[in-house]
Design a binder for these strands. Structure first.
Lengths: 138, 138
DNA sequence: ATACAGTTTATAATGATTCTAAACTAGTGT
DNA sequence: ACACTAGTTTAGAATCATTATAAACTGTAT
């Protein structure tokens, strides 16, 4: 229970009350070495299996949306029928494996410098994201 | 009516019967100089205003899906709540204006060569797409 | 013309997500 | 400890985009 304090701080500093539900979701999402890619449904299933006390689906949505708004999660656009989220909120890119329907992180070093040569007056660039779709070779 | 024959050929060669509805949608989508970006809802509204005889929403969906499957339209991923389509099916990139919520084409020349340095065994790259989000400067 | 497969259509169904409003809880002040 | 208030959670209803259904219609090959 001691390392919950990290998440309690994280939540408080984002103006979110550290509730039981949010702490559980934090642990699941952020207490890991590697990036985690997920859909709401997948996250909800893990929560159901991991904890006896159920967390309402509405809360899962609320929490993910709150984390997204606060910049702790990033929505990744790969498919129009579901939302995918990423715990890696840094500027980075993705492979999307079309066979496994699975996301793989690509960091800036994996993608050569991208030089946008067109500019629009009065507009600034907020982000540049590359999506590389891959599939089995045969 | 004479230039309908272009669309009739286009449809036939894709194995789609040239129906009244499909020809109307073809004219709307492909009879223009510049790329056209749209959502189903937007397309449906234009059709409603342009023609007295109504085309069922289901047909609009069916037709757009058929055109997508046949490679005449491309789905663009910018937002998880709606599907955006593009009549430019060549490999190209986009600006997305977050204020106007509007897509702008970027061709390959506008985006420097992209060099993916990571490879996965047994996988080939199907497509590389860059999405550049832009917003007002102030 | 006839027949049949492909299309269109209105409507129902689905599925992801958001809304609602009542019950609950964390944090603050007493 | 106690109570107050604003923020949360919850189950279920509502919404919205999209897809399925199945009956009516149409293009085309014979």
């Amino acid at each position: 229970m001691s390392n919950n304090s990290i998440f309690i701080k994280k939540l408080r500093s984002s103006g979110l009350r550290p509730t039981k539900q949010r702490i559980k979701i934090c642990k699941l999402l952020f207490d890991r070495k590697n990036t985690f890619h997920f859909t709401i449904n997948y996250l909800n299933n893990i929560l159901k299996n991991k904890y006896a006390e159920k967390i309402s689906l509405a809360t899962v949505y609320n929490t993910v949306n709150a984390f997204k708004k606060k910049g702790h999660l990033k929505e990744i656009l790969i498919s129009s029928d579901k939302s995918y989220y990423d715990t890696n909120v840094s500027n980075h890119h993705h492979f999307f494996d079309e066979n496994k329907r699975e996301l793989i992180d690509l960091d800036d070093k994996d993608v050569g410098k991208i030089n946008i040569k067109k500019a629009l007056p009065g507009k600034k660039i907020n982000s540049i994201e590359v999506l590389v779709k891959i599939a089995n070779n045969n």
